[in-house]
Computed example of a mutant assay.
Amino acid sequence: MHAHSSGSEVEAGLATARLTLRRPELADFADMVVLWGDPEVVRYIGGRASSEEEVWQRLLRYQGHWALLGYGYWTIREATTGAFVGEVGFADWHRSGLPDIIGKPEGGWVLSPTMQGKGYAGEALDAAMAWLDRTIEPTASTCIIAPENRRSLRLAQRRGYRIVRQTTYRDSETCILVRERQAADQA
Rank of each mutant, 00 (worst) to 15 (best):
G103Q: 11
G64W: 00
L68R: 01
Q116K: 00
V110H: 12
R43V: 14
E52S: 13
E54N: 06
A146I: 03
A156L: 14
P24D: 12
L111A: 09
L60T: 10
T75L: 09
A121N: 04
R48W: 11
V85A: 08
W93V: 02
G103R: 05
T80C: 05
F90M: 08
A140Y: 07
R179Q: 14
A30F: 02
L68M: 07
A3E: 08
E53L: 03
T20L: 11
G7H: 03
R95C: 02
A146Q: 08
G122T: 11
T139I: 11
R181E: 06
Q57P: 00
R170K: 15
L98R: 03
G107T: 04
E87P: 01
A183W: 07
K104D: 04
L60R: 05
A3T: 13
A146Y: 01
A128Q: 02
A124M: 01
P113Y: 05
L132P: 02
G103L: 07
V42T: 15
T16G: 04
D133I: 14
L35Y: 11
R77C: 07
T16V: 15
D126G: 02
L177N: 03
D28K: 06
C175S: 14
L132N: 07
Q186W: 03
Y44Q: 08
A15T: 15
G7Y: 07
A15K: 04
D126N: 01
E78H: 00
E148S: 13
A17M: 14
F84Y: 06
G64Q: 09
R134W: 02
A3F: 01
D31M: 03
R151N: 10
G7W: 02
L69Y: 06
A15C: 10
V88M: 12
A49D: 04
T80G: 01
S141L: 05
R179E: 15
G103C: 11
D38W: 07
P105M: 01
A12C: 08
W109Q: 02
D28P: 09
G82N: 04
V33D: 00
R95V: 12
A146F: 01
